[in-house]
Nucleic acid binder design. Structure first.
Lengths: 335, 335
DNA sequence: TTGTAAGCGTTATCAG
DNA sequence: CTGATAACGCTTACAA
């Protein structure tokens, strides 16, 4: 920048003011400076600026790429909204483990992102303290209500309990008595909620809860498949399955294919999480669709609002997923 | 940091050296410093460090989220590899437009990412000069050979021409004489290559090239659908379609559904780009699968190598996609 | 309307 | 084995 200043015959501060339009400059001075900038192909150093101003114009996104079936969509949606607001997006994968989460947040904090959007795993006191101490605006996404302390942060998520119950009831209503559940990774609050929803769905359908019917899909398609293998070997195997999320659905389907079981003829299926193409391929999945883009958009809006007005009380937004009634449940439809 | 130094009764430079393990420290001094750090919950300021060291331990990824059907996968794969190497990932969307690309690169340059991975759009001289002048290691991904000047950079991509021709020939071999092509967005070099591949496939099957049979899917599912509408209204409509990428495939399928045409019974389809679940749903797509993860992994490897050894000659890696023969092409299979 | 100079929090050089 | 000090490139009072 000094070179530019020199070349334009002005001081560094003038150059700075020209670049940032931060005070009146004589038109001809401005022209000279601009010319010098162009001539030298000068671009200002964002790092130095950040050090001076204390702001990076960067938002950190901490979430698990593997555990979140919508990783790509969420990243894309958030990136889009943030770019529009003049921010860049820095990624940090939590892997949905305690250490991973800690590493991710530490990294973002060290890199001084202006704010953080995160899908919390445990969000232990240690991390919370840091976030609060540095007062880094933070919004929680996806998992919003695992622990009471999380309430201190803004959050957007989806209703999980009743919507999962609905997936179960739908099958029960159509005569299924042995309904299995392939659960996503333990330790994640949405998993807990969906499992609870499964039980509630059973109860309200006057069906007993049989722990054997719950398969642990852990964090991937393969474990989901293995869980299905086990369910099918039961002496009284399920006639219908509920998938805990996107990946569970794929894992289940792969396993069923291996067993040469057709959906819904041989076994029915309803799933948490929809696919954009679900309408186009058979079996057309009956699924609970999360409003992913809306979640991302709300997260960003809340973040920007909080940065503008830090003293706001924490806000929790819970979105309703929508039930997509298609064919994999195996029941006749009226439409 | 000064506070930590004070509390530990040492100088700032000692604290720095303790943190970075950059010189021998008396064990007890180290212990005191570490204690002070822990007590104060101190974490170093990455911005200040970057300013001083000239390195950000951040890699920029510039690509279009909408145009690249694999955006999520690529981001995830790259993020994973980079994290393992101690880098963070900063995103910048090019939108596959000239201005967008310029903005994205400028932004990454300003933010001083240590290197850049990008899916180039035009990569005009202006940008190339900047990258070279700043000597920011850069690797091109996905589109690797549009313009001769790109050869100055490292690049990984996929063979497009012959593989698209194969998609066409496969249909021709099985008796189709009117084969339509729904092309992805113009102006992207892979699109050009695939279109060329389409023509070559036709020629080698002794079929004439009829411009009417080429639909412009532009950058999305909707235009792809509209293109299909037009193709179907032709006096001599296609009996088979080739999709230019993931999004085109979905757009095509949506349109065909609207027209109540079944795949492959009423119209055959082969597609560029596979889906991980393609095996599990019908119609099971016959598709050309790109080795996405491998591309990402090679990109990162090349980048790290170049950062270590800048004088290396530019390397171009062209990967072969693999043909997944399934049902949507409508021909009998031997397996 | 413009310039001077301090300082952001590190690291690296040079001394001790 | 440890400390003082300059410098990284910018912004922003304060002064002119």
């Amino acid at each position: 920048m000094l070179d530019v200043a020199r070349r334009a015959g002005v001081s560094a501060s003038t150059v700075s003011h020209v670049i940032n339009k931060t005070r009146r400059i004589a038109p001809e001075t401005e022209a000279t400076v601009l010319a010098a900038i162009a001539a030298m192909g000068y671009a200002s150093d964002g790092i130095a600026r950040s050090l001076r101003t204390g702001t990076t114009k960067t938002i950190g996104l901490a979430m698990s790429a593997i555990s979140n079936p919508y990783f790509g969509d969420v990243v894309h949606a958030i990136e889009q909204e943030l770019t529009a607001a003049g921010y860049s997006l820095l990624l940090a994968d939590t892997h949905d483990t305690a250490e991973g989460e800690l590493r991710a947040v530490r990294d973002l904090l060290m890199r001084k992102t202006d704010a953080i959007i995160m899908a919390p795993y445990e969000l232990p006191d240690g991390i919370m303290q840091q976030l609060i101490a540095r007062n880094t605006p933070t919004v929680l996404i996806d998992r919003i209500s695992g622990y009471p302390e999380w309430d201190r942060f803004d959050a957007v998520g989806v209703e999980n309990i009743n919507s999962t119950a609905e997936l179960v009831r739908h099958l029960a209503t159509h005569g299924h008595r042995r309904i299995g559940f392939v659960s996503s990774g333990r330790g994640i609050t949405t998993t807990t909620e969906r499992l609870e929803g499964y039980k509630i769905g059973l109860t309200s359908s006057e069906l007993p809860f049989d722990p054997q019917l719950v398969g642990d899909g852990a964090q991937g398609e393969e474990p989901a498949g293995i869980a299905v293998d086990r369910l099918l070997e039961l002496s009284d195997p399920p006639t219908a399955l509920v998938a805990g999320n996107n990946m569970m659905t794929i894992g289940i389907l792969r396993a069923l294919k291996r067993h040469e079981l057709r959906v819904p003829e041989d076994i029915a299926l309803t799933a948490y999480d929809d696919f954009s193409w679900a309408d186009l391929f058979s079996p057309r999945l009956t699924a609970m669709a999360q409003p992913v883009h809306e979640m991302a958009s709300i997260a960003v809006t809340m973040l920007l609002e909080r940065m503008a007005t830090p003293q706001l009380a924490a806000r929790h937004v819970q979105l309703q997923p929508t039930f997509m009634h298609r064919d994999s449940c195996g029941c006749e439809r009226t439409s």
